[in-house]
Nucleic acid binder design. Structure first.
Length: 427
RNA sequence: GGUGAGGUGGCCGAGCAGGUCGAAGGCGCUCGCCUGCUAAGCGAGUAGAGGUAGCCCCUCUCGAGGGUUCGAAUCCCUCCCUCACCGCCA
């Protein structure tokens, strides 16, 4: 959420941001409502002042034993007028808040202007895609041959885009989660959190899933609870409605969570394999930072996510998203794309964003820079560190052998109980 | 799910037969004084938000929302949450 006062002060800045994002929004309507709101508000406040003064007078007169009935009848009218005005004020306030909640964040000046994926800018590459002396298979074929991915039973139990992991597949998924959490907590300074996978609508509003993206969420029928689409939601909202004391920033937190997305509107995409599932596992990174340092923190966070892929020996590239491809809440986003030999292209495996104070304002997360200063909004950052299912798919494709087996990356061997190769087995 | 108690400022905790109460007192914190250092002591300050370019100023906020009233932390209604005991349960 943007600050209404900033919008008022410099509406062109917002117009420019909306244009760069390819967003249409009735900004003039908002400004008009704002003006009306402020006018009515100050009218109401003036009357209240009057009423408060009169009420005090009544108290004094009563104490002296005088008769205040004359004032009483006058103030009664004022009170009624206040009620009328306040009704309008709160009505307008509601409308303004609703509109405000639908304006996306303003892109940082370093973000390239563009319309879509094709305008993103590659920042760097790491690792050399392996040369195969046979035709590399896509991960779903490898996984089915090895008996570790079971798509049919996933669909039987739930619906399409659900998959059952079996044997070493299930173990590899678990190994990856533990490997990533250990890496981030012991080497990158993150505190491990195990959050709720269901959160209420206030939390969903705080991180920007609601109200605009409700159709992406699984909602519980009888409760004000939603399945989280990412651990970013519970992690970022950890400090909702709090003022962090001086010296607490930056705060780094990480969590494993299952993520649930309805994937409405992506019917045709990635039907095969485990790239796009309704339920998937992810290790998430979230940071709370002072505004002065949030962009350094973003670079460091991207490095933390890259480190996962480096240690697994998976080639990747880092891409800076353009204005038209960025998420609603983000001011600047880097995607990390891992090389998938089976598909012959790089696929997103992590997305790291600086949301600046956009989410902090929604979730009311502040910090006090020093004991005598006023609270300020923190900057929040989030990033995948990284998507577990996609990493598993990347390992299958990058480490596949001609005989159908898959070699386990060295770093994971301890997490796999010493297993170095997953070979085809019966059952 | 049942019964009972309760939700006040960073924390603890008064106020709750409606009226100069955004709120005593204590702790904590900040600044100053004092003191070889530290501790103690003394003095001052110390909630958040909005209207305003901004000060003074004004308005709002005592879990949330609504109501009664000239006036609500105090009275009434609804909801939420916390704690205790019971029931159920991984």
């Amino acid at each position: 959420m943007l600050d209404l006062r900033d919008i008022r002060r410099d509406p062109d800045r917002v117009r420019d941001a909306l244009r760069k994002r390819g967003y249409s929004f009735p900004l003039d309507e908002l400004l008009k409502k704002d003006e009306e709101w402020r006018s009515l508000l100050s009218q109401a406040q003036e009357l209240k002042q009057k009423r408060n003064e009169a009420s005090k007078q009544v108290a004094v007169m009563k104490a002296k034993g005088e008769d205040p009935s004359e004032i009483l009848s006058q103030v009664k009218e004022v009170s009624d007028k206040i009620k009328e005005l306040e009704k309008q004020v709160s009505l307008l306030e509601g409308e303004i808040k609703k509109m405000l909640a639908l304006i996306p964040n303003i892109p940082h000046e370093s973000v390239p202007v563009g319309e879509g994926e094709e305008d993103n800018v590659e920042v760097r590459r790491w690792g050399e895609p392996r040369k195969f002396d046979f035709e590399p298979s896509p991960h779903w074929e490898i996984g089915e041959r090895l008996g570790i991915l079971d798509f049919e039973r996933g669909t039987k139990l739930a619906e399409s885009r659900f998959t059952v992991l079996k044997g070493f597949g299930a173990k590899l998924e678990r190994a990856l989660i533990n490997f990533m959490l250990d890496l981030h907590t012991t080497e990158h300074g993150y505190i491990e959190i195990f959050p709720p996978f269901l959160v209420n609508s206030r939390a969903m509003f705080g991180t920007g899933q609601l109200p605009k993206f409700e159709e992406e969420l699984y909602k519980c029928k009888d409760d004000d609870l939603y399945l989280i689409p990412t651990a970013e939601v519970p992690l970022t909202n950890l400090f909702m409605n709090e003022i962090l004391p001086p010296g607490s920033l930056p705060i780094y937190v990480t969590a494993y969570s299952a993520c649930f997305r309805r994937e409405a509107g992506s019917y045709g995409k990635d039907i095969r394999g485990i790239i796009r599932q309704h339920q998937f596992n992810k290790v998430e990174l979230v940071k709370f930072a002072e505004p002065e340092h949030s962009y350094e923190e973003l670079e460091k966070m991207v490095n933390d996510a890259e480190d996962v892929l480096k240690r697994l020996g998976l080639p990747y590239r880092v891409v800076l998203l353009c204005t038209g491809d960025m998420g609603f809440t983000s001011a600047k986003t880097y995607d990390i794309e891992v090389w998938m030999p089976g598909q012959g292209k790089y696929r997103e495996i992590s997305s790291c964003s600086n949301c600046e104070d956009f989410q902090a304002r929604r979730a009311n997360i502040r910090y006090r820079p020093s004991p005598q200063e006023k609270p300020r909004y923190v900057h929040t950052l989030n990033g995948s560190g990284v998507a577990v299912g996609r990493t598993l798919a990347a390992i299958l494709e990058n480490y596949q052998q001609e005989d159908g087996s898959v070699v386990i990356p060295e770093a994971l061997v301890p997490y796999m109980g010493g297993v170095r190769v997953i070979a085809p087995s019966k059952g």
